[in-house]
Simulated scan of single mutants.
Amino acid sequence: MKINCIAVDDEPFALSLISSYVEKTPFLNLVAAYSNGVEGLKSIHENPAIQLIFLDIRMADLSGIELARIVEQTGRKKHLRIVFTTAYDQYALEGFKVDALDYLLKPFNFVDFSRAATKAYDYFTMLENSMNTAPAVLPPSTPQKKYLYLKVDYQLQKVDTSEILYIEGLKDYVKLYLKGEEKPLLTLTSLKSLEEKLNAPAFLRIHRSYIVGVEHIRSLTKNSVQIGQTTIPVTEQYKEGFAELLKNWL
């Protein structure tokens, strides 16, 4: 598989270096290199085959963050990913918010670049496999595992949903508490977004800030559930769905 990519950077040396790194990487195909964000954006609109952008953040005419936000609105986000390249580490959080695939801090070497390129290869391989796999490959009687693919520390991580004990929503992030793991996974998304991706019978929203894995509930009362050593309250807004669960237990 070849990944079609472009490089966008207003520093000639940096643009030349990135282009040379791309050309040294067997699974990358350099479509073009641009010295400003406007030309890069035009190329993205005109060429639907572009899959990956190595993108500088600080540029005079159109910044990398602004370009990334425009890409988010095009509907191509799933098939067009970004690796930011910048000399300023204070932009890391901004890059995370626009769901960058990776973040290369200048000056970076070919090893650093290869690591980011491999993330891109893994992502597009996974995407291609998911599009080519027919849902009826397994017989109906065979249970199929469900996975979430979440951005954790600039890596795409595969999470088996059956291992999720409960999920806690924060302001811009969520914490996923997993079976057998001491520390939760932290990812930049909303609780509502995750709720839409999870199987409704297996997970239940019981609080503005919590979704619980039903099979991991150890005990419950009329107003709370116990998962491991954690007690999670049930709020009035979600009592109706919880009442059905309580009824099944009784």
Rank of each mutant, 00 (worst) to 15 (best):
I3E: 07
N4F: 12
C5T: 03
D9W: 07
P12W: 10
A14K: 05
A14S: 10
S16R: 15
S16H: 11
I18D: 11
I18N: 08
S20N: 08
V22Q: 04
P26N: 00
L30M: 02
V31I: 10
V31H: 03
A32F: 06
A33M: 02
Y34I: 03
S35H: 13
G37N: 03
V38M: 07
G40Q: 01
L41V: 13
K42S: 13
K42E: 15
S43I: 02
E46C: 07
N47H: 09
P48S: 14
A49S: 14
I50K: 04
L55N: 12
D56A: 04
I57K: 06
A60Q: 06
I65C: 06
A68L: 09
V71E: 06
E72G: 05
H79W: 08
L80V: 08
I82K: 09
V83L: 12
Y88E: 06
Y88S: 07
L93D: 08
L93P: 00
E94N: 13
G95K: 02
F96A: 09
F96P: 09
D102F: 12
D102Y: 12
L104N: 04
L104V: 01
N109Y: 05
F113R: 01
T118D: 14
A120C: 09
Y123F: 06
E128W: 08
M131Y: 15
N132C: 10
T133R: 14
A134S: 13
P140H: 13
P140N: 08
S141R: 08
T142C: 14
Q144G: 06
Q144L: 13
Q144T: 10
K145F: 05
K146G: 10
L148D: 02
Y149G: 01
D160G: 01
E163N: 07
I164P: 01
L165A: 07
L165K: 07
K171N: 15
V174D: 08
K175D: 08
E182N: 12
E182W: 06
L186I: 14
L186N: 11
L186E: 13
L191Y: 06
K197E: 15
H207E: 00
H207L: 13
R208E: 03
V214L: 07
V214K: 03
R218F: 09
L220Q: 10
T221I: 03
T221G: 05
N223I: 12
V225L: 15
Q229K: 08
I232P: 05
P233C: 00
P233H: 02
V234Y: 05
V234E: 05
T235C: 11
E236M: 05
Q237F: 07
Y238F: 11
Y238E: 04
K239V: 04
F242P: 09
L245S: 06
K247T: 05
N248C: 09
